[in-house]
Design a protein around this nucleic acid. Structure first.
Lengths: 124, 124
DNA sequence: ATAAGTGTATTAATATAATTAATACACTTA
DNA sequence: TAAGTGTATTAATTATATTAATACACTTAT
């Protein structure tokens, strides 16, 4: 299901988060479906269960899954995590924009750059 | 000139950076004027010279001062560090905006939020 | 030339923070 | 009640950041 890369310098739990997040975003995990249990995935990757637990906690924090104690962790419905992601990035955007204002950039300048970014041909 | 706060949990060099940066921004350091030497400021604060060196390196990196080897460090002209600050925040802004686009926020939505931010009454 | 000032580079010591592991707990269901 | 689930707490380990010690290189005035 997942393969760890030992040349990767990032911590294990972060790699796990990244791979699962990509799976969920790309539709590789059916929404509302159960995730593998903490222990089974830990076994599969030869890793301490707490490491997987941490990855799951992160994914839950980011809105990609939710947990029912004693039962398991489930993939969140797509519209939910999409909204969640949007509201997080929006918050950041508002912060930076405020900073830009304070640094002396004008609304007109930012509007212009904004337009440029949305003009670019889709690459994703 | 500067007073360190020992209750502050941040590293010393960071405190020094913050205080000097504020001084420069608020006009407390005449542009093009010489900064105190690494050794003298270190002595004054009872701190290792390398710690001050690091703070200066950071300030140089951020465009607030420039250095002439063997002579000393000088405060940058105001328009220079202002430009520098703007271009840095702009780069960040462009990144986040790209992310916002990828998360599905529309140009119209962002333009609206942009307008709101610039509408707010000045607090600074 | 040389001494006394400047910033800089390199390395080592130390302190702090992050990561992983060990273990015990609590809840759910068959 | 047993076997599965996630969770909390604490300790061990590893990695990173910070500070210090020391030596180097450049500039200027004597």
């Amino acid at each position: 299901m997942i393969l760890l890369d030992y040349r990767d310098k990032r911590p294990i739990y972060e790699q796990v988060v990244e791979k699962l997040e990509k799976m969920i975003i790309s539709g590789g995990m059916e929404p509302l479906t159960r995730m593998p249990s903490v222990r089974s995935l830990a076994m599969e990757l030869s890793v301490n269960p707490n490491t997987i637990q941490r990855a799951y906690a992160q994914l839950e924090q980011d809105g990609y899954l939710y947990t029912v104690s004693g039962r398991g962790s489930y993939v969140t419905a797509e519209n939910e995590w999409r909204e969640n992601k949007q509201s997080k990035v929006l918050k950041e955007w508002q912060n930076i924009t405020q900073q830009a204002k304070e640094a002396g950039l004008t609304e007109e300048q930012l509007a212009e750059y904004l337009h440029q970014i949305y003009e670019e041909t889709q690459t994703l």
